[in-house]
């Protein structure tokens, strides 16, 4: 509860608003000095804004749901004592569910290691956390399309399994 409160105070980041304000000033100046670029700059920004605003609330809701329903304890419980290819796939699945930047994942991975999870499952967990998280994939679908998303997703999973085995091999050889 206390943590929630301190979060609420920091909800609006003054530094970011200042940067935004300065950026708008710079942009306005640039567009006045170089009016020939005006149309392209405004059109590019507005296009992205429209595409973003139709999915952003949904993405945030999904991230909220995952962060409340998938706890760290759950991840550690399921991944802690797994091994083999099943562990790698479970690692990918568990990494794809939660949300948050990479620096949140490293301490979880460290706990997993201490609880006896295999190196390969930790590698796959971190990789999935980094680049195939579900809310993130939704944004990829919206902006880059179904074909791109599926191709990148399948290739990434294949190669993550390979490096998971490789890293485990290198580390356990010693």
């Amino acid at each position: 509860m206390i943590k929630e409160k301190s979060n609420k105070i920091k909800i609006i980041n003054i530094k970011e608003l200042v940067i935004l304000f300065i950026l708008i000033l710079i942009t306005a100046t640039l567009l006045i000095v170089f009016p020939e670029h005006k149309q392209k700059v405004i059109k590019s920004s507005l296009d992205i804004f429209y595409e973003m605003i139709t999915i952003l609330p949904g993405v945030m809701i999904l991230m909220g749901l995952f962060s409340v329903f998938v706890s760290k304890e759950m991840i550690v419980k399921y991944l802690g004592k797994s091994a083999g290819i099943k562990a790698i796939l479970l690692g990918i699945f568990m990494g794809a569910l939660p949300t948050g930047p990479m620096y949140v994942a490293f301490p979880i991975a460290s706990t997993l290691r201490k609880k006896g999870a295999s190196i390969s499952s930790i590698v796959s967990f971190l990789s999935a956390w980094a680049c195939i998280k579900i809310p993130q994939e939704i944004v990829e679908l919206q902006f880059l399309g179904f074909k791109f998303m599926i191709a990148r997703l399948s290739l990434t999973i294949i190669f993550v399994v390979i490096i998971a085995y490789l890293i485990e091999h290198f580390i356990e050889k010693q």
């Binding site: 970011e16 950026l23 670029h37 392209k40 700059v41 405004i42 992205i48 973003m52």
Partner: peptide
């Protein structure tokens, strides 16, 4: 929380693409 960041990056992308 994320909204200002998104606007900042969108303006950056617009500038980049325009110039």
């Amino acid at each position: 929380k994320i909204f200002p960041t998104i606007i900042i990056i969108i303006i950056f992308i617009g500038l980049f693409m325009g110039f």
